[in-house]
Design a protein around this nucleic acid. Structure first.
Lengths: 139, 139
DNA sequence: AGATACTGTAACCAAAACAGTTGCAGAAAG
DNA sequence: CTTTCTGCAACTGTTTTGGTTACAGTATCT
């Protein structure tokens, strides 16, 4: 399974933005992430749609958090990045009428729903401020 | 995120094999899954390495379960198909020494471990016989 | 007004993972 | 010694993420 690094990268950069306090350009954020300004705009754009950050064009523009680190949970960020389910069950659809396939799929779906609930619970319980404090205390 | 259909397909076909009782060729299994004999051999090959099925070459050969459906759990099948972790945390590794990145990664890792434990528990609690009975009762 | 410093977005290419396909070597039964 | 199987390598297609280039739009400064 392929891991999608966007969540980790966004957590990383949002915490930095919160700690710095001001507005940051895509260029500077890209340097924080060892990547490209366009990738940053692409990904932060998804967060903007969900009201987590706001952007301003033109000279002196850039990106800023719309609320404090304490008011943003990991789940907020994840939901902004994901279109669909967080942990979709990998079902088969080769024979939709086969009762065996349906029974297998039902088992997988149930298990994934349990795991997803656990993941969501953990994500919801963690704010970006918590991450920031952990990081600072370990410097 | 991309869903890997191998687990669902293998559950499907293993239950069929268990219900039929005998030896099945890659050709017939491929028809059950609407796919190709080579894909079947490739995937069942992973299960053979873990002792879940055995194969015989030559005329009259094919694939057979090594134990009963009641003695195979979904987790057994999943472990046979997966090399690494079941639910790897999608971490970032852009700045390994940055305490913020490390704190973000730690949070993600912890949450995924909880979810993975839940998934593993559900997989371990479900045998293929359970799937077979569910399917048969719903015919 | 016009240069400058930003974002927004489209259009590509690259890499990774799973799936599908062809081709052929090897083995076992008839 | 032919037929019927598996085993395996090699190639292609597809999807998803990431990286890059290019260019249009916008706000600020002089």
């Amino acid at each position: 399974m392929k891991s999608d690094g966007r969540l980790a990268r966004m957590l990383h950069v949002l915490v930095h933005m919160g700690l710095l306090g001001g507005r940051e350009t895509s260029e500077r954020i890209a340097q924080m992430l060892n990547t490209n300004p366009v990738v940053v705009r692409r990904t932060l754009g998804a967060l903007r749609k969900h009201g987590i950050v706001e952007s301003e064009g033109g000279r002196g523009g850039g990106w800023k958090l719309t609320r404090s680190l304490a008011q943003i949970t990991v789940l907020d960020v994840q939901k902004a990045l994901l279109e669909g389910q967080m942990l979709p069950a990998p079902l088969s659809s080769d024979h939709p009428n086969c009762p065996v396939e349906r029974a297998s799929n039902a088992v997988l779906e149930h298990a994934h729903k349990l795991a997803e609930a656990e993941l969501e619970k953990a994500y919801m319980a963690t704010t970006l401020e918590h991450i920031a404090k952990t990081a600072v205390s370990k410097v």
